[in-house]
Computed example of a mutant assay.
Amino acid sequence: SIQIGNDEHDIDITSEGLSIDGLPLISKKDNGELHIGQNSWITKEDNGRQKVWARDEAGNAIPIDYTNGTKLLINGRDVEQSINNVGALSAALTGLPTVPTENTLACGLGTGTHGGDLAFSGGCASKINEKLSVNYAASITMPGQEYAGNFEDQFSARAGFVWKLGKAIKPTQISMKEGKELKKEIIALKENNQNIISQNKALLARLEKLEKIALSENKSKDLAIYRLK
């Protein structure tokens, strides 16, 4: 071992590693673990993999936190941004139609966000027949992101089909188009009812007039008969 400086402020170089003021800076254990710092960062090669973890003074595993604007990159891609992009791409795809309802083809545009990242999507759903429908869509993140990777890392797509099984049953709910038509029919029925009511009132009024005329004629005849007698 080699000591540089006095006992209070010294640098010790031993077979295990390097220490400053008695605190280990870099040390290598007998089991192959490489420690950086007194307790913190540890790395070890095991079965062809380089393992990395951290410990506190009690030897408990603790998180490794990349802070102060430092980005964790894997193959040049920002890991945090990649996670946010996946969430935004998936959210954008969920806003697109999967089965057309009132016609044979339905298309749409969508958008989604996650963690501050934004994505846009577009797609269509086509009704082949009463039982089979297909849908296809794609989404893409906003351009200009740093450490976003290649195009395939910023793009997502889906395709699928819906096959209805079993006996078809009449739906209990009505579509917006059917609701509008039903509303129009109700309004027309109300108008017809009002017309019928108006006609009935007019007929009643005419009937009352006829009754009055008939009564007055009968009274006149009765009076004439009495006079003749």
Rank of each mutant, 00 (worst) to 15 (best):
S40F: 12
T98D: 14
P24V: 00
V79C: 03
G17K: 01
S15P: 09
Y66F: 14
D12Y: 10
L73F: 06
T94G: 14
T43Q: 13
D65M: 07
Q38D: 14
I42H: 11
G87Y: 02
I74T: 12
D30V: 07
N47V: 01
L34Q: 14
N75I: 01
G95F: 00
R55T: 13
V86N: 10
D10A: 13
A91T: 14
T67E: 08
D21Q: 12
N60D: 11
L89C: 02
R55E: 15
I64L: 03
T98Q: 15
L73M: 06
A88R: 05
S90A: 12
E33I: 10
K44L: 02
S40P: 03
A61S: 11
E57R: 11
W41M: 15
G22V: 01
I13M: 11
E8V: 14
G22W: 11
A61L: 09
G22I: 00
L93W: 12
D78V: 05
K44S: 02
G76P: 08
E57V: 12
W53H: 07
P97N: 14
S15T: 13
Q81N: 07
D56Y: 09
S15K: 14
N85A: 08
D7F: 13
A54K: 05
T70R: 09
R55G: 08
K51H: 08
E8S: 13
I83E: 09
G59K: 07
D65Q: 08
S19V: 00
G87Q: 06
H9Y: 13
V79N: 03
G76K: 04
K71M: 03
N84G: 07
Q81S: 11
N31G: 03
Q38C: 03
I83A: 07
I64C: 06
E16R: 11
V52K: 05
E33P: 10
D65Y: 04
T43K: 06
N39P: 05
K71D: 03
V86M: 11
L34E: 07
H35S: 02
R77V: 05
D46C: 02
I42D: 00
W53S: 00
Y66C: 08
S27K: 14
N39D: 15
V52M: 04
G17I: 04
G95W: 01
L93G: 00
D78F: 02
G95P: 04
I74M: 12
G87A: 10
Q38G: 05
A92C: 05
